[in-house]
């Protein structure tokens, strides 16, 4: 199971399909991974998320699903790559690597007015 991962575009499509499974007119909004152009997602979680999206739409009052993907620990550690490019041949003559922490809004900002929160994440 640990070897199985889903392509990022496939995840988007699976999430949309799951949201529209019960009622095709359901609006599905996915956000949070905009800076990822490619990538692989753990397929076990993708399957669970698909099932949970369908579960959320079982409520007949739900006509829109938001799927928001955030870092669980919102102080994230990034690498900064500073590349010096020569226009003559397009080659990078030198690159400097730095680290950069980014603190960003966490899950609580999305949950203030939610009536019921069913937290199915494993504990850290």
């Amino acid at each position: 199971m640990r070897l199985m991962h889903t392509k990022l575009p496939d995840f988007y499509q699976k999430a949309i399909d799951a949201g529209k499974k019960l009622r095709p007119e359901t609006e599905v909004e996915i956000r949070g991974l905009e800076s990822f152009k490619t990538g692989k997602l753990a397929s076990l979680r993708v399957g669970r998320v698909e099932k949970e999206i369908v579960e959320i739409t079982e409520d007949p009052d739900v006509d829109k699903v938001e799927v928001i993907i955030l870092p669980r620990n919102t102080e994230t550690n990034h690498t900064v790559i500073i590349k010096g490019i020569s226009k003559k041949d397009g080659k990078c003559k030198k690159a400097i690597l730095e680290s950069m922490y980014v603190s960003s809004p966490g899950e609580d900002c999305e949950l203030f007015d939610v009536e019921e929160i069913d937290d199915r994440r494993p504990s850290l």
Partner: peptide, 26 residues
Amino acid sequence: LESHNENMTMTGRITNNNTGSEMMNT
């Protein structure tokens, strides 16, 4: 927290960093 993290607490938009000496709204 992971080893790279600062001495920071985080809830929603608010962080309290450097053992309570640097407060931010993200």
